[in-house]
């Protein structure tokens, strides 16, 4: 697999501009207490509130095509894509390389959206609406891909790229194994591109990504152990590369109570200890807590290394979470879910 490696050692001064900039951008994020207030607003009030924030341009631009929930959802995604592109454009050398490496997750997201859309026979315009051009693939390239006739056409368009090996797993019947392979590829690629370097920035990014893999695997374990899925099936779904991979794979297939007792003592335990019990009703509550733990972890790491990729990473994670929180609130309200249920899903670090 062709992978670009970091060219040279990173000097902290390279990060001064971009970290200064993201710290200023962080102040413009929606404050945590606003989520609770949004629960009590109706859709037009939320749109009006967002118009007073960084989302103004997107809400204005998209308001002629969409309204209500769709407007908010598309505006927040468009704003996130614009913000991430901006971060990439205003950084050079190592920060730019590492930001792009992180943002490839949105390429994976877009490829999944394209394939799912084609799989279920959605039209080009419907698919295009749900693409988030925040990664390496530009919006032009993505709309070109959305216009392809079938899944195999899309897969063959990626021939010769890093994604071809994962996309080759498509068997024509279901997308689950292909999507799993794409996720694994993303983390594998990140490890290969960033892990081999001696640069401080690359090492720190990798430290965060390893923790993220662990958390994702942990969520998978929570879901599957709760449902009593067979250990072999769970192991197939775990993403390799996490720091605790060995320990977590041993927990696959354990009875739920035993699994919970095994988690005590891990650094993430304190953030879930009060709700993790054998009679846990919804894993999504655990998921929200663990996501919040990851954001706190990214910002905590960035305090130790203020001039590194970590503040940028912390910002990107916070921004993604903000967009998904707003989306959860508006979609939840539209579906008429009770406020407590939505509140449990909202991630507040």
């Amino acid at each position: 697999m062709p992978v670009l490696r970091l060219p040279k050692f990173g000097s902290p001064v390279k990060y001064a501009y971009i970290t200064g900039r993201v710290r200023a951008m962080k102040t413009k994020l929606v404050p945590a207490e606003m989520y609770a207030r949004m629960m009590n607003m109706d859709m037009s009030e939320i749109a009006r509130y967002l118009e007073e924030t960084q989302y103004k341009d997107e809400i204005d631009a998209l308001s002629k095509d969409y309204s209500g929930v769709d407007l908010i959802e598309h505006a927040t995604f468009a704003n996130m894509a614009k913000t991430f592109r901006k971060l990439e454009e205003v950084s050079i050398d190592e920060p730019s390389f590492l930001i792009l490496e992180y943002l490839r997750r949105w390429d994976v997201w877009n490829i999944k959206t394209l394939l799912r859309g084609k799989f279920y026979g959605a039209t080009d315009t419907e698919i295009e609406k749900h693409l988030v051009p925040a990664g390496e693939l530009s919006s032009e390239r993505l709309s070109e891909l959305a216009k392809k006739d079938s899944i195999t056409d899309i897969i063959s368009a990626f021939d010769g790229t890093d994604y071809s090996s994962a996309l080759a797993q498509y068997d024509g019947k279901n997308l689950a194994s292909l999507e799993n392979a794409l996720d694994k590829l993303y983390y594998f690629r990140m490890e290969l591109a960033v892990g081999g370097t001696l640069s401080v920035g690359g090492g720190l990014l990798l430290k965060y990504v390893r923790r993220e893999v662990d958390i994702r695997n942990l969520i998978t374990l929570f879901r599957m152990n709760k449902a009593g899925v067979d250990a072999a099936v769970i192991l197939e779904n775990l993403i390799p590369g996490g720091k605790l991979h060995g320990e977590l794979s041993r927990m696959a297939g354990q009875p739920f109570g035993e699994f919970l007792r095994g988690l005590e003592g891990y650094p993430f335990w304190s953030s879930i200890s009060d709700i993790a019990s054998v009679d846990l009703d919804a894993v999504s509550r655990i998921e929200a807590r663990l996501r919040a733990y990851l954001i706190r972890y990214a910002w905590a790491l960035s305090n130790y290394h203020p001039l590194s990729i970590l503040p940028v990473l912390g910002y990107m994670v916070s921004k993604e979470t903000e967009v998904s929180n707003i989306r959860k609130i508006v979609r939840g309200k539209e579906a008429g879910l009770p406020a407590e249920l939505i509140e449990e899903q909202v991630v507040v670090a």
């Binding site: 902290p12 001064v13 001064a16 501009y17 971009i18 970290t19 200064g20 900039r21 710290r23 200023a24 951008m25 102040t27 413009k28 205003v90 001039l307």
Partner: peptide, 18 residues
Amino acid sequence: EQGIGAAVVGVVAEEPGF
């Protein structure tokens, strides 16, 4: 100053009041 200058320009790009 090289680091401070770069960081200040970064912040001012977002927040001119700074």
